[in-house]
Write a protein that binds this DNA or RNA. Sequence first.
DNA 1: TATGAATGAGGGTTCATTCAT
DNA 2: CATGAATGAACCCTCATTCAT
Lengths: 229, 229, 229, 229
Amino acid sequence: MYVSNMSIKTQPSDETGHDATRQHLLEAAGEVFAEVGFRAATVREICQRAGANIAAVNYHFGDKETLYAAVLTGSCQVSMQKYPADMGLAPNATAEQRLHAFVRSFLWRIFSHGPEARHGKLMAREMIEPTAALDSLIKENIRPMSMILMGIVRELLGAKADERTVRLCGTSVVSQVLFYHHCRPVLSRLYPDEKYDAPQIEGLADHITRFSLAAIKQTAKAKSAEAKK
Amino acid sequence: MYVSNMSIKTQPSDETGHDATRQHLLEAAGEVFAEVGFRAATVREICQRAGANIAAVNYHFGDKETLYAAVLTGSCQVSMQKYPADMGLAPNATAEQRLHAFVRSFLWRIFSHGPEARHGKLMAREMIEPTAALDSLIKENIRPMSMILMGIVRELLGAKADERTVRLCGTSVVSQVLFYHHCRPVLSRLYPDEKYDAPQIEGLADHITRFSLAAIKQTAKAKSAEAKK
Amino acid sequence: MYVSNMSIKTQPSDETGHDATRQHLLEAAGEVFAEVGFRAATVREICQRAGANIAAVNYHFGDKETLYAAVLTGSCQVSMQKYPADMGLAPNATAEQRLHAFVRSFLWRIFSHGPEARHGKLMAREMIEPTAALDSLIKENIRPMSMILMGIVRELLGAKADERTVRLCGTSVVSQVLFYHHCRPVLSRLYPDEKYDAPQIEGLADHITRFSLAAIKQTAKAKSAEAKK
Amino acid sequence: MYVSNMSIKTQPSDETGHDATRQHLLEAAGEVFAEVGFRAATVREICQRAGANIAAVNYHFGDKETLYAAVLTGSCQVSMQKYPADMGLAPNATAEQRLHAFVRSFLWRIFSHGPEARHGKLMAREMIEPTAALDSLIKENIRPMSMILMGIVRELLGAKADERTVRLCGTSVVSQVLFYHHCRPVLSRLYPDEKYDAPQIEGLADHITRFSLAAIKQTAKAKSAEAKK
DNA sequence: TATGAATGAGGGTTCATTCAT
DNA sequence: CATGAATGAACCCTCATTCAT
């Protein structure tokens, strides 16, 4: 009986049964959690949007917190799928091109309006009150992303760059991108007329890439001069 | 005795009177709001920590929200007082020195452990769920700080720099600092051995300043070359 | 047993289901609101008397005010059902008989001791602090009752009676009845030995009817004499 | 020093001292109690309107309830002073004239807009939730008023009228007046265009007097016929 | 004497969760 | 299996009252 149940469960396209409700709950919870955060989100609201019973969350996920964890891990994959880190670049692209692609994809993920934007909002909340879900998220998604960026930076800095410098420069790159996510309330108040549509996003990507490349290359030059002494 | 009492009373640090309870409430509320955020914070917890009655918040501040606004503006001043933006620099310091001071003071504010660290936590939460208190805070504190930074960057870029470039470069600077605040949960998980004591903070300040100066100067050179054409 | 249970369930007086709790709440709220008024009544007290949880009012009615409105409209129907305005009179009864029946039924409603007495108490409080529920009550219950009385009075006054006179006389009739409700605290103190059991109530009905009929007929005569001039 | 303090206190016209505050409190409490009733009235509001400290009520009257009693007895005298029951009639006026005066003065008290209107509102609330203050009020004000009316009615009914008839007829008279006070919310909803200014009030007084006189005289005639048998 | 800061009980309401059906 | 009625703890806030000054 369990087996047959599980075989049913693996069918992803069951639209009216058990899994459908589960999926609707995940979808609705993603919306609500992103909009108002874990605490302010109410099980009632989520169930209502999902067209499910008030007890559905407890039935399918046990409690509110477990549902949240499921939402968080799920949202990450959606976001990464839409804007992969390499932006469809050729595998033999230069480090400069790959840095540009990395920055662009990251910015697009941040400024997107669709369901893929949810992940950013959820992550921002995780930064303030990390939950258990964060650990697995870092291991499976953030660390690999970080590795990609560090690889690019290392190549730009040259083989002799020490790891600390690589890390600092990589952090400097990613920080410039994330700022537009973490501090948007301030930006929208300081510069209320600024819009962030496609041209502006590309402009930002250009600036951050140029800014970072200049700094990294200068760092490489300085390190190399240092080493000669 | 009465006379001496009265002379004491005129001091703002009266330990047993009306203002004392008010101060205790602000202190306790600062802790609690920073720890768990506005929503999750309870008036009961705040009053308990302040050694006051449950009705004290309502009596002294009217309601929870007004208390929060008072905490937010107050914490900002505490933070700014301890680490002023110029870090005691001579007024005739070079733009490079002033940039370094700006970055250093900002980082110290972020990594401080005392009550002055609360402001950062409160601000981070404001970024996710801005309250009405944010607007006044931006007008009175953040915008002036932004002006200082933009002035330094403008001087570094040269007189011919357009405002958009100034803004982008300034943003790149401040973002590198704030990253260590907004994303600390990620950093502490990616690099669990990293500590952020005085030497590390100074090291970070050096890196960010050097990184940014290199990029800004390169930008200035490029713009100047562009203009010649 | 299940079967019989289910057959019982289809009856509106289900004693163990959802509607039962709702009914108990209405019953308990009727008591409490009548005893101490809307403001002084507490949700806690009502739920306790209803044997329900503190949250039951919110669950079944949304809030205290909605519960009150339900109680008010409900109590009116209970009261009217027990003592209908025509007191089972034959449809071809004379206007005098119908006036007597109207006064009798009104007085019986006022002096009744059962749950149907609650409506009077609730209405008395509405007279002092009208709530939104009063408007619908007037439209659906009081105005129709008023129409019945005015019809009787108009017939007694004769076809030539102007509407103002009808209204004034009708008001004079109903006021004599309601006085025994609105001013009972004064009456019971001025004449502490007076009791209001069946014979006394019938005696009152006789007096008010006779008093009013005499006055109305004299008014009709005077108006008619006036018209001749 | 104490002595001089007390000598000041005994002066009734002290405008800035102890008694002045007491008077302001009575005045303010009268307003508030009449507006929102005993329960909904707050000590804060009363003290604020009186320009007094929050603790003034407790200081001058002990508690809220005692203040209310003081207000109630005081308001009655104000009301009776402005519209005395005989309306300045000559002492040798006929019973008909005195009945008219009684009805007029009562109606004017009810429809007045000044501070003398407060008593009616307070009384209406007493009818619903009588307090200890009601007993003394009945003894000192209501019973004497009742005696005056009953005397008039007795004279109209003739010497042979039994006390029960006198009482019933007197009650019928006073009830017609009070109705316009107790049921104004209903009247203003049933007949929203009706106004109650001087001409209308006089018209009401005329109707009630005429209506009652007709009924009383008919009653007298009937009783007399009854007696003959 | 007169104040006003402080009290604590109690108000209505919301919420995640449970359990009999 | 899925439901939704019912739960009770906890929320913020209001209030009359008190007491040290």
